[in-house]
Design a protein around this nucleic acid. Structure first.
Lengths: 224, 224
DNA sequence: TAGATTGTTAATCGATTAACAATC
DNA sequence: TAGATTGTTAATCGATTAACAATC
């Protein structure tokens, strides 16, 4: 089956993995059919949005019945590229690099981790999730010999600029980026997924603070 | 100074940490003033958006001149709650838990990590970023004795439900959640910041796949 | 057939961008 | 004052929600 392929809005893309997760869950519980309304309840959105989202890619439902869980899960899996196992390398074998190596190994069917690099003597040669950490100096060599699609940046910001340039130069055009280096600014023809853990913490902090301020105001209003 | 405090739209909240980062950078480079246009270029957005965002909280600029970097950074810092060091506990001393312990210790001025818990004998008693891993059984005891605002969930989904309930019961109302358990569904009066690493990877995978399909189509069109 | 639920168009809502008077 | 840039209102754009004919 060939899917419709207009440009997909970014909010839709972000919801796709969640649909997939909930459908997996339903499949595990042997649920056969699911309506847009039921899916919407799980996703905490509207039936309208569910139908709109799915219809970006095709017509998967049955009028009067809903969606077949098994089929829909499989279709969304295909759309997401699950099972493609794109070859990826991690650069930076510190805390984050090691954790993400594990993450990819254990919970992802999207990428295949083919190598981990580091430039520190103490890391090179050690084994992380079954892979021996390689010397960063071999980066270009390895990536040209092995076809690598994706670079996973687990290095500090200072190192990220150089590493990105080197990965770009051997043809890598997609990045999972944990550093604060802004890849897209310099390389607009790349696909970048940023994970800014610290920004996430700050956003939480902000909301806690706002909440405090709100309850203080309330207390003040009550005492008047 | 008391800030305006209407409800802040979520896209604005997500941009605040980025403003803060760029202003830090400018301050480090001894830049004194910055215009909304210059900030917009760094953020890769419009001058309009920058001014709209900042005016959610007050008037920080000087007509004809722009914004004083030092002042604006400090103000946004205050708005974000940087320096508040809200006391937080991590539950789950595995890969992710350990990494986040480090993250909070090294790069965040929002939270103060006061304890790490795990239920596995092999973890309890070991030292992570200077903290001895405690037995999860002590969770309630510790959190009632020490005032804890935030729970950081680094446990698998199966455990997340129970741990959330226990943290909620001792009064914790904000969560940094790495599990796939949907906290807000059951506890709508909480503040939750979800980090779904796997969803992020899937979104990247989707875009790689879309890109492939697009270039295949293009190749086909050209051969006609 | 009647009931249910889809696919899709239209209406609404919210966020971004543009415009411009105010002002340093 | 003239030039620059703000704060803020208005216009536009895009995403979400509602509505409903099509259909199993």
């Amino acid at each position: 089956m060939v899917y419709k392929r207009e440009k997909i809005a970014s909010p839709v893309i972000r919801r796709l993995p969640r649909y997939y997760r909930f459908l997996q869950e339903l499949e595990r519980r042997d649920v056969v059919n699911v309506s847009s309304g039921e899916l919407a309840e799980l996703m905490r959105t509207t039936a309208s949005q569910v139908r709109q989202d799915l219809n970006c890619f095709g017509e998967f439902g049955q009028h009067g019945i809903g969606y077949r869980v098994e089929t829909l899960r499989a279709e969304i899996g295909k759309i997401l590229g699950i099972g493609e196992y794109y070859p990826a390398v991690i650069v930076g074998a510190g805390n984050i690099g090691t954790t993400m190596a594990n993450q990819i190994l254990c919970t992802t069917e999207c990428f295949n981790l083919v190598a981990i690099f580091d430039n520190s003597e103490s890391k090179i040669g050690s084994v992380v999730t079954g892979l021996t950490v390689r010397n960063s100096a071999e980066l270009e060599d390895f990536c040209t010999k092995t076809k690598v699609t994706t670079g996973i940046l687990c290095v500090p910001r200072e190192a990220a600029e150089e590493i990105t340039a080197r990965l770009y130069n051997v043809g890598i055009r997609s990045f999972w980026n944990f550093s604060h280096y802004d890849i897209m600014a310099k390389y607009p023809d790349t696909l970048v997924e940023n994970v800014h853990l610290n920004d996430s913490l700050m956003a939480l902090c902000f909301r806690i603070k706002q909440n405090e301020l709100a309850s203080m105001e309330e207390a003040q209003d009550n005492s008047k």
